[in-house]
Design a protein around this nucleic acid. Structure first.
Lengths: 208, 208
DNA sequence: TTGTCAATTGTCAGAGGCTGTCACTAGCCT
DNA sequence: AGGCTAGTGACAGCCTCTGACAATTGACAA
């Protein structure tokens, strides 16, 4: 971010994203048009599409940040940990430090607000689930490498990651449904739900 | 399907669906416009939207049939069976009899072809995953009732169904990726993958 | 059979998401 | 200073989808 040009671009993108999130939370996803967002930031609608592939991408940009953050946490887990343990710790850790990543763009409230918008907007929920599936594929590869397995030959990495992801999705959903919109509530739910299923999957794969 | 009117409507819908699926498989989802489909059936594009909520719904209509078929199989499972066992048997059973439901509209090849189209078209895959999530919610309620539990109080029905669904998704994905596009291959994969995870979840919930 | 009612359809207009093009401006670099 | 290039605005246009209105066609009773 050296030149004036780059700084200007960054500012435009941030303004676009911040405004988009604010409007989505306030008036809903469908109730907000790209023109609305562009007008509020005082750029042409065409410019919006130069920064985001579509309205959808702007709506999921914050989630993307969080996912990248989580993925980083997963990769940094020591290889000695069993896969499910590593995933569990990475989740909890990444939530504890989420604000560091998100607050540079929007307040944390906006992140939580967008979460509800996503969960309650069919087309956004769909896109979100698809991205989750992609993320799971990535994580399965990471896990396979940790364990010295071949993702395409051995189904266990994909299965374990998919099962873990399923538990996380139920957790998210219940968290959204219950009024408790705090990161602490999320922590508690995560731990409780994982303990329900986790032990069943904690076998040691390496003694095959 | 008594009156002439109803028969005509049914024929229009079938023609629309059949044509849409053919074109999607042949030219891809994005490469086919609603106008193309309507023109081929010789109705106005407006009429298409009177039969399907959107292009997407036409693309997922066959999946919808299959899901309804599976759901029926689940509900008909005897209550004595443990949840995971019931789900497993319902899946295998509904695949063995899938042709009975699908072939009244399109040949089975078309169904398998659409499956690949869905898996390889981002927006369709997203919609498909969202519908899966909805289906899982329904099944969780069915399971909870079988076991005499409250879906909202006890997380176990949702968790078990979500985990089961996750395994099925991995199965589907691997089945699509491997060249073996037969229902027999699917059966084998399903059994193999479920045996990898199933035992861990087969606990008896009623002795709580 | 015929006239009336209701259901189905086509046409038209238009919003909204998204893309290609082209000229213009503003920052950058020598 | 002047050329170069990235970023932008202003169209024009395609596609999905919706509302409104009129025309057509089947249903049904007199």
């Amino acid at each position: 971010m050296e030149t004036l040009r780059e700084r200007k671009k960054q500012r435009t993108r941030d303004a676009l994203l911040r405004t988009a999130v604010e409007m989505f939370v306030a008036r809903g996803y469908d109730g907000t048009t790209v023109d609305d967002i562009a007008d509020a930031v005082d750029v042409s609608a065409r410019t919006f599409f130069r920064y985001f592939a579509g309205k959808e991408e702007a709506a999921l940009a914050l989630q993307e940040l969080a996912v990248a953050h989580y993925l980083r946490a997963v990769r940094e887990r020591p290889a000695e940990e069993a896969p499910v343990v590593a995933l569990r710790r990475a989740v909890l850790e990444s939530w504890d430090t989420l604000h560091e990543v998100v607050e540079s763009v929007v307040p944390v409230e906006a992140y939580l607000g967008m979460h509800r918008v996503i969960e309650s907007t069919p087309v956004l929920l769909a896109a979100h689930l698809r991205r989750n599936a992609e993320t799971e594929d990535t994580i399965a590869r990471v896990v396979a490498e940790r364990e010295g397995l071949d993702v395409d030959a051995d189904p266990r990495p994909r299965l374990a990651v998919a099962v873990f992801g399923a538990v996380m999705r139920v957790t998210e959903q219940q968290w959204s449904a219950c009024g408790d919109l705090s990161l602490e509530g999320m922590r508690a739910l995560t731990i409780a739900y994982l303990e329900q299923v986790g032990p069943a999957l904690a076998g040691n794969w390496r003694t095959d």
